[in-house]
C-alpha cells in the first residue's frame, strides 16, 4: 500500500487541538517495547507510505513517514545503493518515521554515521497544526535552525513527521567480515585500533568471545585489512542484520536488557555483568542485568538506559532537567498534544 495520507493526519492533529486531546503517534509499532506508552488517541502513519522521490545520482531518497525501512532498502538495493545510516528494523517492521523518532543506529554507526547524520530534511506538523518543511534534499544547507536533526531521538514529542529525506550511499563492491577469537580485555584493545587505523571498516561487534569486524570497499583493500586483523573464521553477511535488528541469538529471551552508551575509546565496561554484546568499537554495549546503573561505572556523559523487559522502568525518554528542554517542547507543541507522557 502506497499513499499520501497527509491530509487525514493533519486533520486529525487539528481536530485534537480543537478538542484539547492528546495524540499518540504510531507507525508499525516495532519499538512498542520501549517505555513509556504515550497517552492519547492513536495517530497512525500506517497509511502514509511510499517513496516520494529517489534519484540515485543525487544520493538522496525522500519518503513518507510510514514507509517500511525494508521497502527503502529494496528500492535502494535495486540501484546498488543503501541508506548512509543503518537504523534497526526490529521485527522487520521499522518505518522511516520511527527510525527518526527513535534515533537508534546499527553496527556501522562510528564509521557511516547515525540517522541524525544522514537526515537532510523533514516535513512535519507542529503542535499548532501547521505543515512545515525544514532542511531539504541537498547535502549542504545552513538556512535556518537545524529543526530536522532536532527531530531525531525526540520520540515524536515535537511534532508529527510526514516525510523525510535521507542521504544514500553506493553499496560497497566487496564486503567481508573478519572474526577473531579474543577475550574481553583483548577486544577492548583491538577495538581502539578500529578508530585509529585507516581500515575500510563498516561495523564492529563483540559477542561470545569473538570480535567481528565488517570490512567494505574494493576487494584488495578489504583483503589487506582482513589479513592485518588476523581473521580466522568466516561469517555470513546476515550476521550484521541480525545484530542490528536484535535477531541474533544474544537477544533472545525476555530478560532485562539495557543499552549502555560509552565514550569512544572508553575502558569503563560493565565488568560485573557477564552477558554483553558490544558494538561501535566499544561505545555501545547491550547488557543483561537488573540494573545497569548499579553494575557499570559510568564516566562523564556516559549513560545506561533500560531497553527491554526492565521491571519498574519509570524513566522518561525526554527528561526536562533543564528549562530549555521544556521551553523547546512548548515552542513546538504548546498544548502538549504529541506523545504526552514521553516528556517528564
Amino acid at each position: 500500500m502506497t499513499g499520501d495520507d497527509s491530509e487525514r493526519l493533519i486533520t486529525q492533529v487539528r481536530s485534537a487541538l480543537e478538542r484539547d486531546r492528546a495524540v499518540s503517534i504510531e507507525g508499525e509499532a516495532s519499538k512498542a517495547f520501549l517505555g513509556p506508552r504515550a497517552d492519547g488517541e492513536l495517530l497512525s502513519t500506517r497509511g502514509h507510505t511510499g517513496i516520494i522521490e529517489y534519484r540515485p545520482d543525487e544520493l538522496v531518497v525522500t519518503a513518507r513517514a510510514g514507509t517500511l525501512l525494508s521497502e527503502l532498502d529494496a528500492a535502494l538495493g535495486a540501484e546498488n545503493q543503501m541508506l548512509a545510516c543503518d537504523p534497526p528494523h526490529f521485527g522487520g517492521k521499522g518505518t522511516l518515521g520511527g527510525a527518526i523518532a527513535a534515533g537508534f543506529s546499527g553496527p556501522a554507526r562510528p564509521w557511516q554515521g547515525s540517522v541524525r547524520d544522514g537526515l537532510l530534511g523533514v516535513e512535519l506538523v507542529n503542535g499548532y497544526g501547521e505543515r512545515m518543511q525544514f532542511g531539504g534534499q541537498v547535502m549542504k544547507n545552513v538556512a535556518g535552525y537545524d529543526v530536522s536533526r532536532l527531530m531525531v531521538g525526540a520520540r515524536g514529542t515535537l511534532g508529527l513527521i510526514l516525510s523525510a529525506s535521507l542521504k544514500v550511499l553506493p553499496r560497497p563492491e566487496y564486503t567481508r567480515t573478519a572474526v577473531v577469537a579474543v577475550d574481553r580485555v583483548e577486544a577492548c584493545g583491538r577495538s581502539l585500533n578500529l578508530l585509529r587505523k585507516s581500515f575500510p571498516i563498516s561495523g564492529s561487534c563483540y559477542v561470545d568471545n569473538h570480535l567481528y569486524v565488517r570490512l567494505s570497499g574494493n576487494e584488495a583493500a578489504v583483503e589487506d585489512a582482513s589479513e592485518t586483523l588476523g581473521a580466522d573464521l568466516e561469517v555470513e553477511e546476515s550476521f550484521w542484520d541480525q545484530v542490528r535488528d536484535h535477531e541474533h541469538p544474544f537477544f533472545q529471551g525476555n530478560r532485562p536488557l539495557w543499552r549502555v552508551s560509552l565514550a569512544r575509546g572508553s575502558s569503563s565496561h560493565p565488568e560485573n555483568c557477564q552477558e554483553q554484546l558490544v558494538e561501535w568499537a566499544g561505545a555501545q554495549v547491550w547488557a543483561y542485568t537488573d540494573d545497569a546503573q548499579s553494575v557499570i561505572e559510568l564516566g562523564e556523559g556516559e549513560h545506561a538506559t533500560p531497553f527491554r523487559n526492565v521491571a519498574a522502568d519509570s524513566s522518561k525518554p525526554i527528561g526536562t532537567e533543564d528549562k530549555y528542554v521544556r521551553r523547546l517542547k512548548a515552542a513546538f507543541d504548546p498544548q502538549d498534544i504529541f506523545n504526552r507522557g514521553m516528556v517528564v
Binding site: G103, S105, V142, D146, L150, A283, G301, V325
Partner: peptide, 25 residues
C-alpha cells in the same frame, strides 16, 4: 547564565539533540 554540556565523547545523549540544534545556529 546556564552552562549546557551537550554531547561529549559518546555517540549520543538522552533527550533532544541540542548539540545538532546548536550547529549552524
Amino acid at each position: 547564565g546556564e552552562e549546557l554540556v551537550l554531547g561529549g565523547k559518546t555517540y549520543d545523549s538522552p533527550g533532544y539533540d541540542l548539540l545538532a540544534l546548536m550547529m549552524g545556529s
